[in-house]
């Protein structure tokens, strides 16, 4: 699977969390990531890498992602991204268990 079926969201705007919104992108658009973070200067690259790594591992290529980060740790970022993908129908539920 290379895209997502529907728009979905995971996470909150609480401190220490990240809110991930995923929508399908036009084919061949690639991964379009819009990132907003309170620690953009210190962890912007790391957050972006983490999200892209999850997408790549799931074989997602054409997608639009908006991430609003409130200082989430790596494990949280991975979990929220995976959950958003699951809700978007891009990841099988079993993969999340």
């Amino acid at each position: 699977m290379s895209g997502v079926l529907k728009t979905a969201q995971a996470g909150t705007l609480e401190s220490g969390d990240i809110m991930i919104t995923i929508a399908s992108g036009p084919s061949d658009s690639g991964i379009v990531l819009e990132l907003d973070s309170i620690v953009l200067a210190q962890y912007g690259k790391a957050i972006s890498q983490t999200i892209r790594a999850v997408l790549t591992a799931q074989g997602i290529t054409d997608v639009y992602i908006k991430a609003v980060d409130r200082g989430a740790l790596d494990c949280t970022i991975k979990a929220r991204t995976l959950t958003a993908l699951g809700r978007a129908g891009a990841v099988l539920k079993e993969d999340l268990v």
Partner: peptide, 10 residues
């Protein structure tokens, strides 16, 4: 170890 090594401000 918990948070990762932060980049420095420019």
């Amino acid at each position: 170890r918990i948070a990762g090594v932060p980049d420095s401000l420019v």
